[in-house]
Simulated assay, not measured.
Amino acid sequence: MSGKAVEATAESAGNLAAPFLDLLPISGVAVSVIDRSGRQSIIHASDDTVEQLAEIQFDLGEGPMVSSFWSANPEIIPDAPLTCRQRWPAFADAMASLDVGSLFAFPLITGAACVGVALTYRWPGGSLNEAAIERGMSLAKAIAGPALERALTFADMDESMAQADAPPLEMRRQIHQATGMILAQLDSTATEALLRLQAYAFANGRTVRDVASAVVLRELDFSLLPE
């Protein structure tokens, strides 16, 4: 399934977790957007178990989802009780009462930024084959942009985002100008350029206006950023 098809499926289902449940052998999934200061927004959780798993990890600051976010790599944990006990003992204690056999975390990557994680679990347990892992990574990449857009729309990330419905005229002009410059730097569409601007701001704990200003002043060139 292509990235656009995944996005369309998720939007029609009303959540971004649906493709994971449809295409992977898992029991539940939570899609979370995270910034570099550790602020989290759970965009969708398919059940109470996976929502608790996500919240526990952010409360403790450890676990496969946290590790996947900071490394920007998947975490594949076929035997969650044993492996978590070895790697994240506090998390293992906190999740002991939950029916979780396996955990699989896939980073949400857009451009050069990791903006969150899709955390999935399986009960009673079992691993994922290589094809399923690749599919999970593709799904996570496909929903990264829509997940970030949804978080920016609904989360009170900062004052400028809270007022995004009616930003000052000068702010709109600056963001529009920066989007055009990023479009030229990356040879992309306007939609992709704006998303990259938002993703960079989110991942680095800066406002969109601040990053747009840096682009306009030629202090930041997106063509020089790692892919």
Rank of each mutant, 00 (worst) to 15 (best):
T179F: 03
I182K: 01
S188Q: 05
L183Y: 01
M171D: 08
H176W: 02
M181P: 05
T120N: 12
Q198L: 11
A151V: 11
A147L: 07
G116Y: 02
A178C: 05
G126I: 09
A155Y: 13
F154A: 09
A201V: 10
D158P: 00
L186K: 09
A113P: 03
G145S: 12
S138R: 13
R206K: 15
D156Y: 12
A131G: 00
L148K: 06
F202L: 15
A144M: 14
G136I: 06
P124N: 06
T120R: 05
E159M: 14
A184P: 00
A199V: 10
A190F: 11
H176N: 01
C114L: 00
D187S: 12
I133F: 08
P168W: 00
I133T: 13
T110V: 12
E149T: 03
N129I: 08
Q163R: 04
T191I: 11
P167W: 13
F154Y: 14
L195R: 14
A132I: 00
H176C: 07
A131H: 05
A162Q: 15
A190L: 14
L197R: 00
Q163D: 02
K141W: 05
M161E: 03
L119M: 14
L128F: 11
A184G: 06
K141T: 07
A164N: 14
T120Y: 10
S188D: 06
P167V: 08
P146M: 11
L139I: 10
L195Q: 14
A184N: 12
G111Q: 09
A144H: 11
K141F: 05
R122L: 15
M161I: 03
Q198E: 08
R206V: 14
E170L: 01
G180I: 04
E149D: 12
L119H: 12
I175N: 00
Q177L: 01
K141Y: 02
T120H: 04
L197V: 02
E149L: 12
R150F: 07
A164E: 08
C114D: 01
L152I: 02
D156S: 13
A164Q: 14
T153Y: 03
D165T: 09
L128K: 09
L186E: 08
D156Q: 14
G111M: 11
R206E: 15
A147D: 04
R206F: 15
G111T: 13
V117S: 13
E192Q: 02
A203F: 02
E134R: 15
A155E: 09
A203Q: 03
E130D: 12
M171S: 13
